[in-house]
Write a protein that binds this DNA or RNA. Structure first.
Length: 696
DNA sequence: GAGCACTGC
């Protein structure tokens, strides 16, 4: 009576598509005998439902199945349920489904629990940082961020409790996803019974297939049946979006902010009602466009009165972000001018028109200077398609691309560069080391990072005393640093604080350094913000200033009003508390003594130095403009104007990070004594060239 | 006296 495909039953019909992958011929969905409740009917109306049998067949017979599914296909919520219904969660095994983002994990898990009529955290559960809603032995389907799954591998390198692991949104190519894919490929060789599903929104499935294709064949006697086929299966599932008509400009656009404004006005004049979503690169562009558009509307008369113009970027205060979701009043048209946040993280209902500038801010990394920064760069074709798709969620839409069709076809790359190839790899390398991957340079990456970047990461870890001469994790420091889920320099700072007796203070600093900013985003009330900052400013620098803010917050009883009055971001402070609690638990597990140094800030600065000695700088002699040089590399740097040490210019400082604009600015700076540097890292500072007037 | 795409453990 069951319609599910089971091993041994007649196979569904398969067809080779022109790409050389395996594509299933749609089966009829109407013959199902699943339940008749409305939820079941809804499930059956999803495009993925037609492929249910095919998916189960492919997963049964292939070690890896790649599913190309557009948004709205239902793959994320349905496939884990199909697998469970087909018995993949029998015998205490668990079906895992990873997501790049926490919010998606929670949303999908609660949706699936609802569809299955179970309480979230029982048969269906989820795990994200700070939250574990699963029940061992009961949970059959578990949603989690890919970062959490990597963390789980530290305790269970073969992920032995999982029968199927579905890696969703793999096309986004985040660092965690790429590390995970590389490791899963390795696990497959040891666990032929494990099944992988790689789910991606773009057609670049072939390169993913090639990556998993090269898996070594499971060895066995000649003629023996060796379990699943090694070559990955590829299956495409259509989405449920509406058609989106694409319009290109006829000639290149010189000023895309201006072009955005005129395009929005044109849509508003000529097109029927429906909201407009604009993609620009960052806060600057967006604020400029909002201002320009508002002025145009005021100069334009009656027809433009119906526009509600809203900016959207992650740094926006919570209340302003929420305006985006308010339904558009009758007769009005909403225009949301956004960063990439609306491309993947947030979904706006009611959008019918998309205006795509063709650019976004992207992280880039130079391993030689060890500097990460953001650059405005052209987006990929995949990104352009994703942006256009945002116009077709409620009804057929239109997308206006502010670049020529010729440019789209000939100049835009098919896919973006994976994050792995645009980032500092220190955290990535230590994670792999902790998982016993000794040969980092020879690791089978989905997209190998440059050797320079890997060597740079190894150097930094060696200088921190986390790796030894053989590039193996040191014990215990190396393992401890790997266990703390933060940048290794911060983790090292925490370890040192244990010996220096200031771990209570240092974990507060570590928590603050791992959020964006404790201050409310500065524009508009700059003077007031600067004055508020002075109330907390410490002569030692920004790190000690953070301690003062934290103390003030606790003394206020964690009051939102107190935060508001002092230009402090309340949401950020709540996050600091949360991260701090987690660090405290990790520290206790690692045997780090939690101790406060009370008012002795000297040891706090020494602990900071122990983690960040590589970022030491010296004020240039006779410098009247605050010019510093890094000790290693002798690069010209300046204290950022947002630092409490701006214009104070102590002789020796260490910084937490550099931002590179017209100059290189040090953010989060603390003054130090030069003797501490050699104390903290004698090996690192022993061979300074004599031209560098160092450590006298 | 300047600027923060977006995630995640």
């Amino acid at each position: 009576m069951s319609q599910f495909w089971k091993p041994g039953a007649e196979k569904p019909r398969l067809l080779d598509d022109e790409e050389g992958g395996v594509l299933f011929l749609a089966a009829s969905a109407s013959s199902s005998r699943l339940g008749h409740s409305s939820i079941q009917k809804q499930r059956q109306r999803l495009p993925v439902y037609k492929y249910r049998t095919a998916i189960l067949y492919l997963v049964e017979t292939h070690a890896t199945t790649i599913i190309v599914g557009e948004t709205g296909s239902g793959k994320t919520t349905q496939i884990p349920q199909y697998l469970k219904e087909a018995g993949w969660a029998d015998g205490g095994r668990v079906i895992a489904c990873t997501q790049p983002r926490r919010l998606a994990v929670q949303a999908v898990a609660s949706r699936v629990a609802e569809e299955m009529g179970v309480k979230l955290g029982e048969e269906v559960g989820y795990t994200i940082r700070f939250e574990n809603l699963t029940n061992t032995g009961v949970t059959m389907i578990k949603f989690l961020t890919d970062g959490v799954l990597l963390k789980e591998m530290m305790d269970d390198p073969l992920l032995s409790k999982y029968s199927v692991i579905m890696v969703d949104e793999a096309h986004e190519r985040s660092i965690s996803t790429d590390i995970l894919l590389g490791l899963l490929k390795k696990i497959q060789q040891r666990r032929p019974e494990l099944r992988l599903i790689i789910s991606s929104a773009t057609i670049e499935a072939k390169s993913m297939a090639a990556f998993f294709q090269t898996s070594k064949k499971h060895r066995g006697m000649e003629g023996e049946v060796l379990g699943p086929r090694i070559e990955p299966a590829i299956l495409s599932v259509e989405g449920r979006g509406f058609n989106v008509q694409i319009h290109y400009v006829e000639g290149p656009v010189s000023n895309y902010v201006q072009a955005v404004v005129s395009t929005v006005l044109l849509i508003h004049d000529r097109e029927p009602m429906g909201d407009i979503l604009v993609f620009l690169t960052g806060q600057d562009d967006i604020d400029a466009a909002v201002k320009l558009l508002t002025e145009e509307v005021q100069n334009c008369g009656r027809n433009s009165l119906g526009l509600i113009i809203l900016p959207l970027y992650s740094g926006l205060p919570r209340a302003e972000q929420e305006l985006i979701f308010a339904p558009t009043p009758r007769g009005k048209r909403k225009v949301v001018i956004s960063t990439n946040i609306a491309e993947t993280s947030l979904t706006l209902e009611g959008v019918v028109y998309v205006v795509d500038s063709g650019f976004s801010k992207q992280r880039s990394y130079n391993p030689l200077s060890d500097i990460e920064n953001l650059v405005v760069a052209p987006i990929s074709k995949a990104s352009a398609r994703q942006r256009a798709g945002r116009a077709g969620r409620v009804r057929p839409g239109k997308c206006y691309r502010l670049y020529t069709e010729e440019y789209f076809i000939n100049e835009m790359s098919a896919e973006g560069i994976p994050e792995m190839q645009r980032s500092n790899l220190v955290s990535c390398v230590i994670q792999l080391k902790a998982l016993g991957i000794d040969n980092i340079l020879g690791f089978d990456w989905p997209a190998p990072p440059s050797p320079e970047a890997m060597v740079r990461a190894l150097e930094v870890l060696y200088s921190l005393g986390v790796l030894d001469d053989d590039a193996k994790l040191t014990s215990p420091a190396g393992f401890q640093v790997a266990e703390i889920a933060l940048d290794p320099m911060i983790s090292k700072m925490i370890l040192s604080s244990s010996e220096l007796g200031c771990s209570e203070e240092i974990i507060t600093i570590a928590a603050v350094l791992s959020i964006q900013s404790v201050w409310v985003s500065g524009r508009g009330a700059q003077k007031e913000l600067d004055e508020a900052k002075l109330r907390f400013a410490a002569a030692e620098g920004d790190h000690v200033t953070f301690l003062n803010v934290y103390k003030g917050f606790l003394q206020s009883g964690k009051s939102p009003q107190w935060c508001h009055k002092n230009y402090i971001n309340y949401q950020a402070m709540k996050k600091v508390i949360e991260i701090r609690e987690q660090l405290k638990r990790t520290a206790q597990r690692l045997g780090i003594v939690l101790k406060s140094c009370e008012t002795d800030m000297l040891v706090v600065r020494k602990a900071i130095t122990a983690g960040f000695f590589a970022n030491a700088c010296r004020l240039e002699a006779f410098s009247h403009n605050g010019k510093y040089r890094t000790i290693r590399g002798s690069q010209e740097v300046y204290i950022h104007p947002s630092s409490v040490l701006f214009r104070v210019n102590p002789k020796w400082v260490i910084y937490h990070s550099l931002v590179s604009t017209d100059r290189r600015y040090m953010r989060n700076v603390t003054s130090v004594e030069p003797s501490w540097l050699r104390e903290a890292a004698p090996h690192y500072y022993k061979h300074q060239p004599p031209s560098n007037p160092m450590l006298h």
